[in-house]
Design a protein around this nucleic acid. Structure first.
Lengths: 251, 251
DNA sequence: TAAAATAAAATTGCATGCAATCTTGACATG
DNA sequence: CATGTCAAGATTGCATGCAATTTTATTTTA
């Protein structure tokens, strides 16, 4: 990791965009943000680990300001917990929170395929099939790469809807699902069944939206695994108490 | 608005929470963030308006640091556009973006009611019915308040799922829908049909999830209006070009 | 020895300063 | 008159300093 403290590097020219879009300039904050994001998702940073601003700044050769901003962004994404006056920690979601995240992801993925069914251009179909091939190739040798490609598949699918917000939410959710799986996932996680991806694509091409949606939901549940989705979330203490209070008042 | 620049006020004691939750301490940044958020949603700040850090800092009696952080959060929420080296602007979504936001909201609301159907405690049912009454009362005299309450209804519903992430996404989306409607909404917007809310609640109580979902989707489409949801999104230039390229290559 | 009190070190919250970049408006030029 | 150039002003990107708070290490006390 670089540790120099040279004078400010020239910013990449912003190439006169019209407006409307934030225009990516790959600022230093974004670099640090992205690096930390990767580190968390790849389990290089243990959930619950402390992330002092100073340390991050030194590691990347920047001031705390940058580190702070990156941490703020990560906290919005849910990959970092920010505790006022106490600092930042790698997110350490409970099992319940993990389940919640998967539930939301399942719903988002459903939206994606419903919108895409029967709408794919042949260029897009070609691209998806190519991704499938790449997944297959990578899967044989590099597990790490295979996992990354599998995630990419879902994100690319979302991208094809052209819905920026949907892409953002799904990106966030997929990241957090990775984190959840590093904590609660089985060791021999299936991650993403290649054949399930293939079936989904075929359903999309055939224009069978509801079937694609069902395949996708099943697929996500598969990834999440029993521990996460099939367990019933216990009711909160408050709920339990109020239901007992109810029972009593009824006699 | 206060404009003093006195020494740092004592922070509210963080009351030793265990961990896991970010612990709300109502920092100054959060105050500024919330104020700006309200101002944008209530149309006090015109879409596209410039938001210089200095100006915000002076208005709230803080430094640019605070303003900057608040702006960053708002940009993540999509209420502000941040352009590197150029500054912050009140978000000014295009019609397409507005449609995208409503589509996502519709999907999120669907998730909410599907999860809630047949699961409401009688305390929750009571609370929802009370909200209905309040909406009715407010609707007669204070339109502003009625709109606020209507939004609150949707958020409270989400809250009842106990799914934090779902609540966050829906909160964000509802805010952005407000913004979109201030730009593209009809003047005599229906906002939220009271009777539709009532029907949804009844379906939830009856445990008819799919019916509640349909009612909710219809309800959101009603709010969005024709202009936003019934128009077909035109294909992007890239899509058009590639489909023409295709046609040519086929002969 | 365990618990409480206290002092020292580490870390965050926030303001401010300076250089880089962008915006503007005056001025020159075709 | 439209267009291009360039300097002055405005604004952001980032680093740094200091006070407040939290964490830790140490000492005191029961």
């Amino acid at each position: 990791m670089p540790k120099a403290k040279e004078t400010r590097p020239v910013a990449t020219a912003p190439g006169g965009r019209k407006a409307a879009e934030p225009a990516k300039a790959a600022t230093r904050t974004e670099k640090v943000h992205e690096a930390l994001r990767q580190a968390i998702i790849e389990q290089q940073l243990e959930p619950g680990a402390r992330l002092p601003e100073d340390m991050i700044g030194e590691s990347f050769g920047t001031s705390r300001t940058i580190a702070r901003e990156a941490l703020l962004r990560l906290s919005v994404e849910g990959l970092v917990d920010l505790m006022p006056n106490r600092g930042a920690f790698v997110a350490n979601p409970t099992l319940d929170e993990g389940r919640d995240i998967f539930v939301v992801r399942r719903g988002l993925e459903r939206m994606v395929v419903l919108q895409l069914a029967g709408q794919l251009s042949s260029a897009q179909i070609e691209e998806l099939r190519q991704m499938l091939v790449n997944e297959e190739l990578a899967g044989a040798r590099d597990e790490r790469e295979a996992i990354r490609l599998a995630g990419e598949f879902h994100l690319r699918l979302a991208g094809m809807t052209g819905n920026k917000l949907l892409v953002r939410y799904l990106t966030e959710t997929v990241s957090r699902c990775s984190l959840v799986l590093t904590i609660y996932g089985r060791p021999h996680s299936v991650d993403c069944g290649l054949d399930e991806h293939r079936q989904i694509i075929e359903a999309l091409i055939a224009g069978e939206g509801e079937r694609a949606a069902e395949l996708m939901e099943h697929h996500i549940e598969q990834v999440a695994g029993r521990a996460l989705l099939e367990t019933r979330k216990p009711r909160s203490v408050q709920d339990v108490l109020s239901s007992y209070a109810e029972r009593i008042s009824r006699g």
